[in-house]
Design a protein around this nucleic acid. Structure first.
Lengths: 150, 150
DNA sequence: CAGCGTTCTCTGTTGAAACGAATATAGAGG
DNA sequence: CCTCTATATTCGTTTCAACAGAGAACGCTG
């Protein structure tokens, strides 16, 4: 195989990344769906669990989401309707609305820890730890530059 | 840094992949948007350009899309409304509908070749060709197993 | 304490994705 | 010729994403 130029490699790398994401995220999507969740709602549950009993402002939830969601309000609306979260207007700053994990929400996210980990291990089954570290390092380089690329 | 187990690395790798995809795909999304396209419509244009003047059945278009689209009909509806594609029922098999690239569609996709390549080169700017090949190889390993993972 | 800019959240609306059911044609078998 | 199954596409409906704009509260300044 002749040496390929970056003009050939870059589009190929992008396409491969998209396909790999499609494959992996699709698997996680179906797993979440079996439990009545989506990737976004699961992420919110994880975030709120990490935030502890203090709760977290809606805007902070949006900031910490891996995939950008332009409308956290309605996302939390659905989750509150499903009894996964609880909302309460902050007494200190009455602009902010704090979101908390409900008992049902905590139970749901806890019950998913094991299946999610198993799914991840299965997805990366053919990789050695060194290969995984290399992959993480390579992909992590995309996250360094400032996101304000207009 | 101590050696990390796969149980620690796998979720991290997944998260990093999702974040990297979010970053890269987001950039492409805004690029396409400036030209009145989405990632899906751009992919359809690329597919139809590759298919040539013979056209391509709608179902084949759906199969070749990188991201799975459950409703090719309405996707092509919008593109036909925008004058990007043309459809015609096959005379050989009257079940299939062949999709063709219109002149406008061809001009649109041709005009994007350069910006898209430039965007990809910018995204992978900090990578050497060897690193790119390594990344492609690693990500490509997710695509090998059969997709019928129920 | 009144005005002003900023931040945070909600709402209205449009467009698209997702899922399922329905229609139409082709091809095989009796 | 008729039926039956498989394939290709379309349509109906619900749900979610995306974008813009409005309302409410905070902090600062004069």
């Amino acid at each position: 195989m002749a040496r390929r130029s970056k003009a050939q490699l870059a589009p190929d790398a992008y396409l491969t990344l998209v396909r790999a994401h499609e494959r992996l995220a699709g698997g996680m999507h179906s797993l979440f769906k079996q439990h009545g969740l989506t990737q976004a709602t699961y992420n919110v549950l994880r975030i709120l669990r990490g935030a502890g009993p203090e709760g977290l402002p809606c805007s902070s939830v949006g900031d910490r989401l891996v995939t950008r969601v332009p409308d956290v309000t309605r996302l939390l609306d659905r989750m509150e309707r499903d009894g996964l979260v609880r909302r309460e207007r902050s007494s200190e700053d009455r602009r902010v609305v704090l979101a908390f994990l409900s008992d049902e929400g905590r139970a749901r996210v806890d019950s998913l820890d094991e299946p999610v980990l198993a799914a991840h291990l299965a997805q990366f089954e053919g990789f050695t730890t060194a290969e995984l570290e290399s992959l993480i390092s390579a992909l992590g380089r995309f996250l360094e530059p400032v996101p304000t690329a207009d």
